[in-house]
Amino acid sequence: MIYRGLGLKEKIISSIIISVATVSSLLLLAMLIFILRESWPIWSQIGVSGFLFGSSWRPLNTPPEIGILSMIVSTMWVAGGALLIAAPLGFGCAIFLAEFAPRPLAAILRPVINMLTGIPSVVYGFLGAAVLVKFFEVKFDLASGESLFAASLILAIMVIPFIVANSEAALRLVAPEYRHAGIALGVSRQYLTLRILVPLARKGMFGALVLAFGRAMGETMAVLMLAGNTLRLPGSWFDKGEPLPALIALELGSTTPGSSHHQALFAVGLVLVLMVIAVNIGINLLLNRLQKGG
């Protein structure tokens, strides 16, 4: 690294690069601080538990009633339900790609997975609402077919590609010796995969699932168009609800800056982003420990 001392020019270039990199990544913290500041009156007046566990959202009343329990519950139903549907299919597809798919078929499927992630959520939401919801209405004779379940179903399709890509990578990381030993022992391909490879890759596969959960929680458009948007506490998966992102998207435009309605939406944003970041940091700690352990 002798050349580092050679030129002033090199020093200037490297310090520009370091400062730009640092400043742009710090934008994340700036966002969090800004959202915290905008929502501050809510936390100091209503309090954390009052806000999180209050079940009535009437921000325009005097005094305003601001609690987001039903939206948090909706978010959990929608995202958890999406994983329930996506996990078996995503894992199945990842195992298929890593172990069973004939080479030409795998060569087709991998770009297909990429293209599925390229389709925007508003298109998924639109197709879900125009086709799926219509189908529910006709089939089960409902007045309106929107529900948390419908949103979960479409979200599942949206997160499957992420589960597949990440779990396939985890399966491929398993050392080939295990495969060879299994084949030498004469167990079936399926037994080898489920009893040996999957347990060895389980942390990576679990990580894929958690990452998908974070995505599903923050997804806006599909949920907005499918979940039905009612502010009542959902009693089951087949009720309507309004997850946190949909609440922000629907109401932000109609608020007056400085009103408690406006501040409350920023508090909603803060809760959502902290939920997602907690999931992301959790997964990072998990993967770091995995790397150090292996």
Partner: peptide
Amino acid sequence: LAEIINLLVQSMAGIPSIITGLFVYAL
């Protein structure tokens, strides 16, 4: 520093897009 920046960038990738919208709306 690179480790921290990597972590920040990765977390940014996970931020829901509506939150970005919320931030830019306020700012």
